[in-house]
């Protein structure tokens, strides 16, 4: 009797998982990502989001976007530390996250604030709105260049440099969450902590590479 082994294409569970993930088409992610706001909107219209659906919809979309941004940041560390390869899905995750940010902004403009005069007043006067808009602006060029044509056009190095804007953008998103709540609830602090750790993991690698002489000194 021979001991059970992983199927022969693999020697580790994570490789088996990677093989399964290769079968998942990227369009499935876009389909699921597109369905979620539609489900939320339906729930909001039929009482599924409680008695105050406007704020609930706004918050659900905002938090879904933040979750995806954090997930996007986790993809590189997941590969580096666990060998889990989700690189194929990273663009879709980023694009869906940006779409959620857009819907979040749209719900705020159309259903929540309602008046164009108040919209501008809020952007200028309310720090959490100003910060939220800054996050949206930081993410916009990334969404616009999330296609193969832009990668070719910009060149891989410049494209990568541009897309490092996601680091400040995610920090800004966490800050946006933190400064709009009342009191000291723990949830925004957890988001901020996770994001800081995910960003530090990157700094760490660049610093180590620099000390080993492998990379130019980070500026």
């Amino acid at each position: 009797m021979t001991a059970w082994t992983w199927p022969n294409i693999t020697d580790r569970p994570v490789n088996w998982l990677n093989a399964q993930l290769r079968r998942l088409p990227v369009w499935a992610l876009y389909a699921a990502g597109g369905a979620w706001p539609a489900i939320l909107l339906y729930m909001g219209a039929t009482g599924g989001l409680g008695v105050e659906p406007i704020t609930a919809l706004e918050h659900e979309l905002g938090k879904s976007a933040l979750n995806l941004l954090v997930f996007g940041l986790a993809i590189t560390p997941l590969r580096r530390f666990f060998g889990l390869n989700l690189m194929r899905f990273r663009r879709a995750i980023g694009v869906i996250a940006f779409a959620y940010v857009g819907f979040h902004l749209l719900v705020w403009l159309v259903l929540d604030v309602q008046s164009p005069a108040l919209i501008w007043a809020d952007i200028v006067k309310r720090p959490y709105v100003t910060v939220g808009m800054a996050g949206f602006l930081l993410l916009s060029p990334l969404a616009a260049t999330s296609n193969n044509w832009s990668v070719r056009r910009l060149g891989a190095a410049a494209w990568r440099r541009l897309h490092r804007l996601v680091y400040p953008a995610v920090l800004v998103a966490a800050l946006h969450f933190m400064i709009l709540v009342k009191g000291f609830p723990v949830e925004p602090l957890i988001y901020l902590a996770v994001i800081v750790v995910l960003l530090l993991l990157r700094l760490d690698r660049r610093a180590v590479a620099w000390r080993a002489g492998g990379l130019p000194r980070p500026r």
Binding site: L41, E52, P53, L118, A121, D122, R126
Partner: peptide, 15 residues
């Protein structure tokens, strides 16, 4: 951090 000029009466739904 926000305006107090207006309010939303609970129960009016999504619109």
């Amino acid at each position: 951090r926000w305006s107090q000029a207006q309010e939303r009466r609970i129960g009016g739904g999504l619109f």
